[in-house]
């Protein structure tokens, strides 16, 4: 049984143009799904729909046995689906790290002693134990975003949605955050839906979906999505850097295999071929 399911969902902000149109999709437990698409393709709207911050105009979103059109299950859904947003500064609400992480559990009425345990667990999961009493102001972007993830984890969600959570970070910060997310996915079995601009981030997903104009344009394994290069570019996707280099090399007559996506593959191919 899928852990999250969207059935023919449509949503419009202004009742004229649909930000998401007739969208159907489901995620299995433990999956890592990347959501790609150009600006305005409806990616972020999707995150808010999955989290019951927005309610679909048409169709239905269900998380476990809870449906987001039932007002009573809003909090049950939000407990199970945590979202980490783009700007770390605009999602931390307290001036001390542990207070911020406590915010979620406090909201759902977790007893005090257990909140302490959850803070410890969440900070450990993102590798920030020694910052428990620090002020977020003093942290780097990547560290702040890890705290934001910890704040979401403290609600023990089943699904973690990253809504362009790495977009405002430098490459080092991006790596930090992705490593934490991968680890959560692999070791704790947290289902991840990563909405992103960076094709590199989509490469280690189990599955990629591409949105265009609010509609599901393509769905498949990362290799499948990027193998049809022309179509990928048409959907507003920029191929991973290594893939573009490989393509250019082939065009210039270097004999390497086609369909290279990652730096590692490219390096191996280049060093192996003479």
């Amino acid at each position: 049984m899928p852990i999250l399911k969207a059935e023919n969902v449509s949503f419009s902000y202004d009742k004229k143009i649909n930000a998401v149109e007739n969208f159907s999709f489901s995620v299995e437990k433990g999956e890592y799904v990347a959501v790609l698409g150009r600006n305005g393709s409806g990616k972020s709207t999707l995150a808010k729909l999955f989290n019951a911050l927005l309610i679909p105009d048409k169709g239905k979103i269900t998380v476990g046995e809870f449906s987001s059109d039932d007002k009573k299950s809003l909090f049950e859904i939000r407990k199970r689906v945590g979202v980490v947003f783009q700007n770390p500064d605009n999602q931390l609400i307290a001036s001390i790290v542990e207070d911020d992480i406590a915010f979620g559990p406090e909201n759902v009425g977790v007893p005090r002693k257990e909140i302490g345990e959850r803070i410890e667990f969440a900070l450990k999961a993102v590798g920030m134990e020694e910052f428990r009493r620090s002020s977020p102001e003093r942290l780097s972007g990547g560290q702040k975003q890890r705290i934001a993830i910890a704040g979401v984890l403290a609600l023990t969600p089943e699904i973690l949605i990253l809504d362009e959570s790495t977009a405002m970070l430098d490459p080092a910060g991006r790596k930090e955050v992705l490593k934490v997310v991968e680890k959560l996915n692999e070791e704790q079995g947290v289902t991840v839906i990563a909405i992103t601009h960076y094709m590199e981030e989509a490469l280690f997903a189990d599955r990629v979906i591409v949105l265009d104009g609010g509609k599901l344009a393509k769905e498949g394994r990362p290799e499948e999505i990027f193998s049809d290069r022309e179509n990928a570019v048409k959907l507003g996707l920029e191929l991973p850097f290594a893939a573009r280099i490989a393509d250019e090399l082939i065009k210039r007559g270097v004999k390497i295999k086609s369909g290279i996506l990652t730096k590692e593959e490219l390096a191996e191919e280049l060093c192996g071929s003479k």
């Binding site: 989290n51 911050l53 909090f75 939000r78 407990k79 945590g82 979202v83 542990e98 207070d99 406590a102 915010f103 979620g104 559990p105 406090e106 909201n107 759902v108 009425g109 977790v110 007893p111 005090r112 909140i115 302490g116 803070i119 704040g151 979401v152 609600l155």
Partner: peptide, 14 residues
């Protein structure tokens, strides 16, 4: 909102 904030009702304090 996404971290289940709903005012002071049923809220605990760490």
């Amino acid at each position: 909102d996404s971290r289940c904030y709903s005012g002071s009702k049923n809220r605990t304090k760490y």
